[in-house]
Design a protein around this nucleic acid. Structure first.
Length: 424
RNA sequence: GGAGGGGUGGCCGAGUGGUCGAAGGCGCUUGACUCGAAAUCAAGUGAGUGGCAACGCUCCGUGGGUUCGAAUCCCACCCCCUCCGCCA
């Protein structure tokens, strides 16, 4: 959520930022107009409340019944007005909150301008794309031929966009998860969390998914709990409504969770294979930092995500997302894409974002810069490290051999119980 | 799921209709003492919001209600604890 005060003080900055994302700058003016009405109503309400409080005190102190009754009559005289002002204030407050909560984060100055995702900028490419003396197959063919990716049974159990992994490919997925958690806890200094996979609506509001993206979420109406679309959601609210001590920062966490997304919007897109399912696994990195440290932390987190790609032996490239492609809560984002030889495309395996104080304000995550000081909002950052299915696709496709077997990358062998070749 | 108890400031905890944003303690800040530290003593110290400011308003789990006035009374919900039931 944006800072309403800052928005009031400096509307032009927010208009420009909003417009650069393809939004209507008028949205900003609408919020400001609403906020003005809100403050005006609150001002009048507070004056009346102050009067009432004064008189109520006098009633309590009044010696005789006559004085008391006279004062009561005075209060009663403006009671109706006060009530309608309270009603109005409440309505305007809610409307203002909703309007502000619907605005995306402010764009960082160094984000490339753009109007479509084609304006994202590739800023680095690493690793060698594998070459083959045969025609490399896409992972769905490899997996099906090995009998280790079972699309039919996934559909039988749960419908389209669900699949079953079996045997060594199932194990390979587990190995990737183990490898990534070990990497981030040891190398990156992230503390591992095991989190609930279902959360309350408030938690989703705190991280920015609600109310805007409700239709991409699975929900249990019975208990009013929601399945997490990413570990970012529970980690954000992990420190929700807390005041952290300054010397505790930075706080870095990583977590493995499955992610559940209805993906209603993109029906028909990427239907082949395991690239885009309703359920997928991900290891997430997350950091709570002092505001002055968030830009450096973004680079660190990007390096941590890169280390994951490199460690798995995957060729990858880094993209700076342009203003038009930036996510709702992000101020600046790097996407990491790995090369996948079978389907011949770059696959997004990580998105690393500096969220600034956007989630911290929603989730009320603050810290004291120094003991006894005023609490201030922290900055939060999140990054995939990595999205598992896409990483799996690249591993399977890049390490395939002519006979349809798959070499297990060196880094994963410790977790594969001696298996060096899948299907061998 | 059933019965009972409870949710108060960074933390613990008192407070059952007005003078309560709230005793006391811990923690923290500053000062005194000390070569320094500890201990001790003194003062200060909740969050948010509106205002240039003076100052005002809101917040005692959440949301409603009663009342001139609610931390305190009523209703609903959420959460925690204890016991019973069930259970991987």
């Amino acid at each position: 959520m944006l800072d309403l005060k800052a928005l009031r003080r400096d509307p032009e900055v927010f208009r420009a930022s909003h417009a650069s994302r393809g939004g209507d700058p008028g949205d900003i003016d609408a919020v400001i107009a609403l906020d003005e009405r809100r403050r005006e109503a609150i001002g009048r309400m507070e004056t009346l409340r102050a009067d009432r409080r004064q008189m109520s005190k006098q009633i309590g102190q009044a010696k005789d019944a006559d004085t008391r009754e006279a004062l009561k009559a005075q209060v009663a005289a403006f009671k109706g007005e006060l009530q309608s002002l309270e009603e109005l204030s409440r309505t305007l407050e809610a409307e203002t909150q909703a309007a502000v909560a619907a605005l995306p984060n402010l764009v960082a100055d160094d984000v490339p301008r753009g109007t479509t995702e084609d304006d994202n900028v590739v800023i680095a490419t690493h690793g060698e794309r594998p070459t083959f003396d045969f025609e490399p197959k896409p992972h769905w063919a490899l997996g099906t031929d090995l009998g280790q990716i079972d699309f039919e049974r996934g559909v039988k159990l749960s419908g389209s966009r669900f699949y079953v992994l079996r045997d060594d490919i199932a194990r390979l997925q587990r190995a990737v998860i183990f490898y990534l958690l070990d990497l981030h806890t040891r190398r990156g200094g992230y503390r591992e969390l095991y989190l609930p996979f279902v959360v309350r609506g408030e938690t989703l509001f705190a991280s920015g998914q609600l109310p805007k993206f409700a239709d991409n979420l699975y929900r249990d109406h019975e208990e009013d709990l929601w399945l997490v679309p990413t570990a970012e959601v529970p980690i954000t609210n992990f420190h929700g409504d807390e005041i952290l001590e300054g010397d505790a920062l930075p706080l870095r966490y990583c977590a493995y969770t499955p992610c559940f997304r209805r993906e209603k919007m993109s029906a028909g897109k990427d239907v082949r294979g395991i690239k885009r399912g309703h359920q997928f696994d991900k290891v997430e990195m997350y950091a709570f930092v002092r505001p002055e440290d968030s830009e450096a932390e973004l680079e660190k987190m990007r390096a941590d995500a890169e280390a994951a790609c490199a460690g798995l032996g995957l060729p990858y490239r880094v993209k700076a997302l342009c203003t038009a492609d930036l996510g709702f809560g992000a101020r600046k984002t790097y996407d990491l894409e790995v090369w996948s030889a079978g389907c011949g495309e770059w696959l997004e395996v990580s998105s690393v974002s500096n969220v600034w104080d956007f989630q911290a304000r929603r989730a009320k995550i603050r810290y004291r810069a120094e003991a006894g000081g005023k609490p201030e909002l922290v900055h939060t950052l999140n990054g995939s490290g990595l999205g598992i299915p896409r990483a799996m696709i690249a591993i399977l496709e890049n390490n395939q051999q002519a006979d349809g077997t798959i070499r297990v990358p060196e880094a994963l062998r410790p977790f594969m119980g001696g298996v060096e070749v899948i299907g061998g």
